[in-house]
Structures are given as structure tokens and as C-alpha cells.
Design a protein around this nucleic acid. Structure first.
Lengths: 395, 395
DNA sequence: CTGAAAGCGCTTACAG
DNA sequence: CTGAAAGCGCTTACAG
């Protein structure tokens, strides 16, 4: 056995740990209270890692100075040093009542020892874990990237921790969810629209609150952009700008949001007595948008406006227009959805619908806060109104 | 008190829980062993949520059928139902020795009850938590997005869970790290180059293994793209293609990788006896690249090649070239770094250096697996050779 | 306000 | 192989 180093300590077998470092081994449960320890002469015990109690420090086997161990400082260490009970330390770091004097001594001791309550142990007692699971399904969608990023930030700001569980080729979302539940998360957020209804149904049966982000499944609480309204607003805008042959570039995997956007557009067109042209993007990406737009532009009666399911499609369509030497927006207007950062780049200046993510996330965090406070989880979806962002490609 | 529902159960106060549902209240610790329970007539106890033991089911206060409670099934429930001890159940789900017969009965009982070991409780005993903390500093960098996404996938594939801790405006990385440590994570990965050396120094003092991704700080284990080699390869390539006035578009926040890329380029240019032009991007984005390139193109002696710190800069530079009506690559070659997905888009066809992320992540995951197996954490950085991807903008 | 005790759900020597 | 017991680090009624 080489000389023990702080960094190797925490993986040393338990018994050796105690033996080598001479930490007090408990005789029996709860025998480690202040009174008992005081009787044994352990009051105001030294820093963990230093010798404690009577007898030669067994661990000082070499002349090398062993630095104080940084972690594994428990509430008991702090209690010993402050001359109080473990309960007092717990109350001090929790929301219990502690006298000013006690608090001060505990805080000093904790500071000196570098104590931080073990979140894992803390949550075992039935309190919340402070963990929010993010189930992310569409990892290839840049808009989901942004949503994920913003959610991570919001969760950190809310002083919670995000457990991110992606849908992998090997594991579907159901299995992933079960993994999340193993950690007793306070809430689960399903991000991305591709999770199947069957899976969401299973989720709903759990006793952990589940929320959906970006979809509108009945009976499950969450937030979403009002996709129908977005489709309607976009359609009306294109109609007002004089377009008459409006095509919708739709997605292969027919998600909730896609259907709603299309329905909103169809409503606007129907009201104006205009037909709804349509083209399917076989691939959920820039490439797919490019190909779909290419097919549209090759039609005998070319559309004069493309309303794309999302910005990536729209950027692909923009590229296709350029390949056809079509002027945008003169020959063809192109409208996206999502307002990804790229949409604002001067190279594209894409007109689009902005889902107002910050508002959505604020609502979601409020819902999470509610269930953390003990309220039953919401069963309704808050819809957030999207905003029409007019840039160059449609105006 | 309204009728109890499964979904409200887990937030009901503990005592009420037991009382209302008639679950066995422990008389004293460890008195709940099979033998004791058998004596009390509790062997092969029913599903949790159903009545257990003798006496009228106290919870059946309404005619409404209460469905079996889905969670809060503990090892004890399974043990009772299978007629074995809690230890046996633990061994069955851990890596202990169990006879075939016992295993079968436990698995059946677990299946029927929907039991899953509580990861939180499990990790308290000193085993690993299965949690890997990802400290993400540069949340605005699309390349970091991709790294994060790939890391999430890799961690899930390795059957671990990712605790993502972003650097927020409110919390710096040190504080975030402390939060991560509260959860006893198995390892911490610092993603992104902007974490200050001071902070990384503090991290190193912890007893939780820390790895760096994408930077090369001495003494701290991790993986990174060989930025110096990348700079050298890119420089040599531009020189071979006949460029003589080569400019480096550099970053304001002077990270490790930036300095190394620049040094590699400088080495290549020095060997060829060529000068190193330089321009600073004030903003770490497309916009910044655009502006820096604009200043370069406005110089009296315009550079004939731009080597950009990253692809975003290069895309901005591309846009600037178009604004100056410069032909790419005839008038000016543009070379990026990172090979973000957009670089491959036909609209850009950006030549760039690909960091070989998959190789980096595979190495990192191997390092993490090592420390999970009890090995001391590596203190060296594995460098992965970047690959020159030649598309249209430099060839 | 404070401490002793019991408990959270698990694992792991220990002794058969 | 198996069970009884002790323990992980915390919290929370309970009784002063």
C-alpha cells in the first residue's frame, strides 16, 4: 500500500479508511452524539484527516505531511467541532430554528472544515432531490439545442440541477425515463416533439410530475408555442403581402407542432379562398428543405411563397431559390419558424416566427416550482403566442 | 382530506402515508426481516397500495378503486413478496451471489411490483452515483453545443447519467462545481476553454476526479484536439496552395486553444519565411468574424488567405468577402476550424479542420471508466490529431 | 432552542 | 448461498 494521498482516500475501502486515518468508528448507531463523544474526550475534534482521539496517529506512517482531506466532511464533524448535536447542524443548513450563537459556531466550524451537506443523503429523507430530468428526443434539431441550453440555464438559476437524459439509438425514452426515476427527480420535462403518444401515456402514469415542452398532448401539463396561431399569422402575413400560391414545406415525421402549423396556415388560406400547396421534406434538415424547395420550384406553376415548418428548412429553401436564380422575396417569399440565431444573420435575414422561448421557459419553471412546493402537477398546456419577425425573405 | 390518489401519495406526510395505506410501520430498525414479518403473517405481502396484514384496509374509505401505487416500492417489498431477505434482493440487483431459484423469485416479485433500486439510496453506501457532472462554460459557442450533445449521448451509452451545470451569469464555475460535488458525482468534466486557470486549479484540489475537454492545462487529465498541429497543418496547406499573405483571425478572450492554433500557424509561416498577419475579432461570433474580415479586406495590402480561429468566424469572413465582391477561393482563401455541421452546407462549403470529436470523446469516456473502476485519475491530456477537410473556400 | 433516537432505502462485512 | 445487523449522511418528530 503506497502512502495515502487525499485523492486516493475516497476510493479506499471503508474499513481501511477509518483504521488508517484513525477516524472514530461508531460503536453503535447514534452513539456518536456530542455528549458521548465529549465523554470520550472528542469534543472540538480536529480537522478530518488529522489525528483524532487518544493514541498515536496510526496514519502518520511516513514523514510526508498528509494534508487535511477535503471532502467526506460530514455533519458529525461539524457538530463535534462546534460542540453541538448533528441535529443542530442539520437545522442550520436546512430551514430549522437555531439560536444565533449556535448558528455562528456551526457556520464557523463548517467554514473551517469546508463542509457542504451531501445532497444525496439529504434527499433520501424524503425531501426533494433538487434534480430535474430533461428527456431530450430530437438531438439533431438546432432549435432543440437552443431550448435545451435555455432550460439548462433556467434550471441552474432556479438553483436546481439538470439531469439530461438523451434518447439514444440504444435506449428509447421510456427506458431513459425509468433511469431518471431511479434518481428520484423532482420533475421530468419531455423536450422535443418526437416522443410517441404511447410513451407519454406511460409517463403520465408515474407519480413523478411530468411536463411537456413544445408539444400539446391533452392531459399532460406543459408549455408550447401556439403553433396553430403561428401558422395562421404566417399565412395571413403572406396573403397580405399579395402571395397567392403558398406552399407549406412539411416534415416526414408528423409531429403535433407540424400538424398544428399546417392547420393554422390552411385556416388562413381557406378564409382567403386560396389553395394550400404542400411538399414533404424527406429529411429533417437543411438538405431536406433544399430538396423539397427544389421540387416546388420545378413545378409548372411555381409557388410564390414557401412557409417552412422550421428555419432549417427555410434556409435550405433559400439555398434552392438561389440555385434556381429566383429573387427572394420578389419571385418567392420564404418564411421559417423558430427564429434560430442563424436566421438573423445578414447572409440570410430570414423572416420567421419566433416562439418566445423565454416566456415558455418561465412558465415551465413556474410549474416546476409549484410541484416542488407540493402542489399537484398541472394538467394543462400553456400556449405562448409566437411573434412574426419580418426580415428580408418575406416582407 | 380528499380521496387519496396515487399521484398525491408521494407528497403526503410520511406518517399519514403509512397510516392511511396500512403499510407496515417499522417497530424498530431491522425488525422488518422476513422472519419477523412471517411471524406477523406478512409473508408474500400484496402489492404496495393494496391492503397488507390483518385488519380492515383503513385506506378503502371510498368506493373509488385505488390503483396500485407505482413507485415507492422498496427492496423490502420485493423481499417480502419473494419470501427472502432484503440482503438477497440487494445482491440480486447488485453483483452479489444469489442462487438461481432465489434470483428467479426475486425477479418475479420485482417485476410484479415494478421495483427499481433507488439510485440515490444505493449511492449513499459508498458506491459510485453513476453521475458525471458536465461543467459547460461557453454556452454561446455552437461547437460547444455539439460537444455537449455528443458527451450527453456518450454518457448515456456508458450507462451513466449526466448532471449538466452551466456557467450562468449569476454563478461562476467554482460555485457550480461545488453544487456538483454536493451530489457526489463520479467525475467532473470541464467543457469549453473559458474556465480560468485559477478555477481549474481549485478543481484539481478536489478529491473528485476532474477532466478537461478541449483545453490543455498542464497537470489535469483530459482530451483535446491538437490545436498546434491544426494550426500547422492549416498553415502548410495554405502555403502549398500558393498563398503568401496569410492572416489569422483571432479571438479576444485568449484561450489556450486559440494561442496554440496561432502558434502552429506561425510555425508553418516562419518555416516558409512568410509574415503572419493578424486581426482580432472583438466578438466571439459570426458578427465578429465578419467585422474582422472586413477590416482585413479594407487593408491596403489585402491578405490572400484567412485562417480563422473557428468556423463561425470563417462563415462571417465568407460573408464579408461576398460584401467586398471577392471571389472565394480565387481572390481569398478562407479556412475555419471545428467543422460544425453548417460548414458542410453547400451554401458555404467551408474548408476547415475537423477535431475528430468522436475519438476525443471515446478517450474521455475511457478515462472516466478508469476512475469509476478505482484507478487514480489521469494527469495528462490526450491530444487527438485534427483532420484537414478541403471543401470550396480553400483548395 | 436543543439533543437522542429513529428513519430514508440501500449495501456489505459477518456469521452461519 | 443466505439473513441479521450495522452503516452510508442526512432529517425530523419527540421530548425536554
Amino acid at each position: 500500500m503506497p502512502i495515502l494521498q487525499p485523492s486516493s482516500l475516497h476510493r479506499t475501502p471503508k474499513a481501511l479508511d477509518y483504521g488508517t486515518y484513525g477516524l472514530c468508528t461508531r460503536v453503535h448507531k447514534n452513539a456518536r452524539s456530542t455528549a458521548v463523544r465529549a465523554r470520550a474526550g472528542l469534543r472540538n475534534s480536529p480537522l478530518p484527516g488529522e489525528s483524532r482521539g487518544a493514541g498515536a496517529p496510526a496514519w502518520r506512517v511516513s514523514t510526508r505531511t498528509v494534508e487535511p482531506v477535503k471532502s467526506r466532511v460530514t455533519a458529525q464533524h461539524v457538530a463535534d467541532r462546534a460542540g453541538v448535536s448533528r441535529s443542530a447542524v442539520s437545522r442550520c443548513f436546512g430551514d430549522g430554528q437555531v439560536s444565533d450563537d449556535t448558528r455562528k459556531r456551526i457556520e464557523t466550524a463548517a467554514e473551517e472544515l469546508g463542509y457542504r451537506p451531501n445532497a444525496i443523503a439529504r434527499s433520501l429523507t424524503g425531501r426533494s432531490t433538487g434534480l430535474v430530468a430533461l428527456l431530450v428526443a430530437e438531438m439533431d434539431n438546432p432549435h432543440v439545442d437552443i431550448v435545451l441550453k435555455k432550460l439548462l440555464l433556467a434550471i441552474a438559476e432556479a438553483d436546481k440541477r439538470a439531469l439530461v437524459i438523451p434518447e439514444t439509438p440504444r435506449q428509447d425514452v421510456t427506458e431513459s425515463t425509468m433511469h431518471a426515476l431511479d434518481y428520484q427527480v423532482d420533475a421530468i420535462v419531455v423536450v422535443g416533439g418526437t416522443v410517441s403518444d404511447r410513451v407519454v401515456g406511460q409517463l403520465r402514469a408515474l407519480d413523478t410530475p411530468v411536463f411537456q415542452f413544445g408539444r400539446q398532448l391533452a392531459g399532460l401539463g406543459g408549455v408550447a408555442c401556439d403553433s396553430h396561431l403561428g401558422g395562421l399569422l404566417g399565412g395571413q402575413f403572406l396573403i397580405r403581402s399579395g402571395r397567392t400560391r403558398i406552399a407549406y414545406v412539411t416534415k416526414t415525421s408528423s409531429t403535433d407542432s407540424n400538424q398544428r402549423r399546417r392547420a393554422g396556415l390552411a385556416a388562413a388560406l381557406g378564409a382567403a379562398g386560396l389553395p394550400l400547396l404542400e411538399e414533404l421534406s424527406e429529411d429533417n434538415s437543411f438538405e431536406g428543405g433544399y430538396n423539397a424547395a427544389t421540387r416546388l420550384f420545378a413545378r409548372l406553376e411555381r409557388p410564390d411563397a414557401l412557409f417552412c415548418f422550421n428555419d432549417m428548412f427555410a434556409l435550405g429553401a433559400l439555398q434552392a431559390a438561389s440555385a434556381f436564380r429566383l429573387r427572394v422575396p420578389e419571385d418567392v417569399a420564404i418564411l421559417g419558424f423558430d427564429d434560430i440565431p442563424m436566421a438573423a444573420w445578414p447572409a440570410f435575414a430570414l423572416s420567421t416566427l419566433r416562439p418566445n422561448l423565454d416566456a415558455q421557459i418561465a412558465r415551465l419553471m413556474a410549474m416546476i416550482a409549484e410541484v416542488c412546493d407540493g402542489a399537484p402537477p398541472r394538467r394543462t398546456v400553456d400556449l405562448v403566442v409566437p411573434e412574426l419577425v419580418i426580415r428580408r425573405t418575406a416582407c
